[in-house]
Design a protein around this nucleic acid. Sequence first.
DNA 1: GAAGGGTTGAGAAACGTTTCGGAGAACCAG
DNA 2: CTGGTTCTCCGAAACGTTTCTCAACCCTTC
Lengths: 341, 341
Amino acid sequence: MAATIKDIAKQLNISVSTVSYALNGGPRSVPDDIRESVLRVAKELNYRPNRVARSMVTGKSDTIGVVPPEVTDNVFLSPYLHLALNGIINEAGRQHQDVLLFTRCSEVDRDELASILVDGRVDGVIFIAPHFSEKSVELAASLHSPCATVSGVPLDGVLSFSVDNESGVASAMGHLYGLGHRKIAHIAGRLDMQDALVRLQAYQAFLRNHHISYREEWVGMGQFTIDGGRRAMAQLLTLPEPPTAVFCANDEMALGALFEAHSRQVRVPEDISIVGFDMTPGSENVYPGLTTVRQPIGELSAAAVRALKALIDGKEPQEPTVFQTELIIRQSTTCPKEHKS
Amino acid sequence: MAATIKDIAKQLNISVSTVSYALNGGPRSVPDDIRESVLRVAKELNYRPNRVARSMVTGKSDTIGVVPPEVTDNVFLSPYLHLALNGIINEAGRQHQDVLLFTRCSEVDRDELASILVDGRVDGVIFIAPHFSEKSVELAASLHSPCATVSGVPLDGVLSFSVDNESGVASAMGHLYGLGHRKIAHIAGRLDMQDALVRLQAYQAFLRNHHISYREEWVGMGQFTIDGGRRAMAQLLTLPEPPTAVFCANDEMALGALFEAHSRQVRVPEDISIVGFDMTPGSENVYPGLTTVRQPIGELSAAAVRALKALIDGKEPQEPTVFQTELIIRQSTTCPKEHKS
DNA sequence: GAAGGGTTGAGAAACGTTTCGGAGAACCAG
DNA sequence: CTGGTTCTCCGAAACGTTTCTCAACCCTTC
């Protein structure tokens, strides 16, 4: 039985509109004495404005929605999603927005996913690393509801924030190449995701540019997971001619590769060098520390929130933004054996 | 300009109530032919129900709120909060609930925090590890809105989920004691949080029960953070008589302690043993692997969601639930030096 | 003292749903 | 044919806000 604006009005024998104006410093002024008594009675009755009712009228909710790439158990354990979500939350707080997490996208069909985008509970939506097959981004764009993607395909009507994968991959591969590696394998992520595909292509482009022939058996599919990385590494290590270095499309697969190497008594980096991508917290404290490509996931996500908020506020949509990466050299990479002695 | 129920009614020349019944399989039946045409037109018009309006009438939102212990930048980077949030999201999805993250608790006063609890956007709230000073839990309880705490103080009218800290601490301390350690220090967490306080007390109780005298200088304050753990460890290591083992109230502080030991050329576990608490993912892959006390944070949080949902659905409130811990012995603990040779 | 402007506050509409009350039609049993 | 039950479906109320319209009043100013 929460108190409403009507209760206040009744108690003071004034109209609800006056109460509303007083409470909000509303579009109209009210005399000081009335305002004070309204505030007093509001406090007495323990009045709390009902945000749902307000949303109903204003059409605003001060809440932004976040759609994960998929909804399976423990998606949010992914370090990438973790960093992205953290960045979103940080910035959302600053922008005075709450965050609504959609947890039910998988069990409903795409149509319904679209419905949650426009059901009035959020002012805008951020899609984190959507799959190519995910139609809801286009749907959201076609509904003209403010939306943004983090690491998605740039699309008309959608704010887009991504990282310069090409130069990131080039720096990682260049590092290995510079150390003398020529037998460089790649463990790719889920190819139905933008980052994975682009990184694979950039890997291939690097080989081409450096006149190294592309060998299909040196590309493993790691699905962006630790286990996937392990399996892919296992395959690579049992090849008749194994590579001397592995570039992984994210840190989790790199960790998996590292663990697989450990369990097969293959030394890292002496026997094989490993490079990751993302610079997740977990890449730092393993043994040996993982050489990786830092991408500013948090900043990228925060920028998405900022731009989304601006769009919601009626500003002009921001152009697609590409963030730069940075190579972080740690202990998991060194010269190939043949080169050394 | 989203289509509404009215548009459907107008197009078919029937009343909105009939449309609503048809759409919802509502409390009343409608003839099959009408239902079908309603569904058809709804599809044609791309109709999406407005959840806000529905909430308004039904008073339900199918959304549960999550309140972090505090809102500062990067709170959600905390592995504890990460695991808790992940557990909540997993279970919320299963219970067909979305998750609203409150990002704005710090800048508003407690009163306002309470207001977001009952502003109609959520059906219930989960407080994760609230501080003692946090009045909003009591406030929420007094407002009779469904709420739960994870690792909070048990309180009337609040569902409570926590872990058996006493036995967890006893198993960790017992492990060190069994290895021969008698000089056991403790790095405590934020003492304005339930878990930290109880673990400190359990540490003291263990010493008492084993007739080891309590030494104040062997208790460091680590604030539950890596940096705090580092600083506390630095102090312990510069003591005239340093301890041979350190029991930390969480894994992050244990990692901090580990790193500090590394940087001072103090070997772990040969020179000093370290035990953590939580079994966060980060504790596994460091060198040496961290002995720790596993607490099922995810399950605990999931249970909170389940119980909260049941309460929202009008079931009887579940009794406070205490989860058991499990000692995970890895490589960061061994016998003290004096004992060995 | 009348015209005009500004201030004040009451009343009501609107947002999009759900669901109740009840009117009319159809059907059945007596 | 009558009385009761069941089926249809319309109209309207309700949820709690925000904000518009409009009337009443007060104060200038000519």
